[in-house]
């Protein structure tokens, strides 16, 4: 299967690889996927007091499309509000990276990762309760 140039670019030069301290009050962490399914994404965002995403980091275990999807969203979320970040749709990711149908699940996972990270920081900020976040 041939990968698109954008997938290859993100795979070979992934943006914002790494980790923040997940205990830090300004850091939201989302970890989605499962080793059994062949992909796990960890996405972290650093959020300012006024709710703007200042920085992002990711680590991904998965195929090239999964790595590219998570690398791309770390670029996209920077500068966005939490609400704006939570609006990112998997279809936008899939379109940007020209993912083939068998790789759509990679973009779904990336969307889930953002949502999980946003939920996590909102819990920390007391904007939502823990049980609400888990739902």
């Amino acid at each position: 299967m041939a990968y698109s140039d954008k997938v290859l670019d993100h795979y070979e030069h992934p943006r914002n690889v790494g980790s923040f301290d997940k205990e830090d009050a300004s850091i939201g962490t989302g970890m989605v996927g499962a080793p059994a399914c062949g992909d796990v994404m960890k996405l972290q965002i650093r959020v300012s007091e006024d709710g703007i995403i200042e920085d992002a980091r990711f680590k991904t275990y998965g195929c090239g499309s999964a790595i590219a999807s998570s690398s791309l969203v770390t670029e996209w979320v920077k500068g966005k509000t939490l609400d704006e970040a939570a609006e990112i749709k998997n279809t936008q990711i899939a379109e940007e990276l020209a993912l083939p149908p068998v790789k759509i699940h990679c973009s779904v996972l990336a969307e889930d990762a953002i949502k999980a990270a946003v939920t996590n920081i909102r819990e920390k900020r007391g904007e939502i309760s823990g049980s609400e976040g888990a739902a």
Partner: peptide, 8 residues
Amino acid sequence: RDLSPLWE
């Protein structure tokens, strides 16, 4: 592995 959350 530097990219892998499982390795971390």
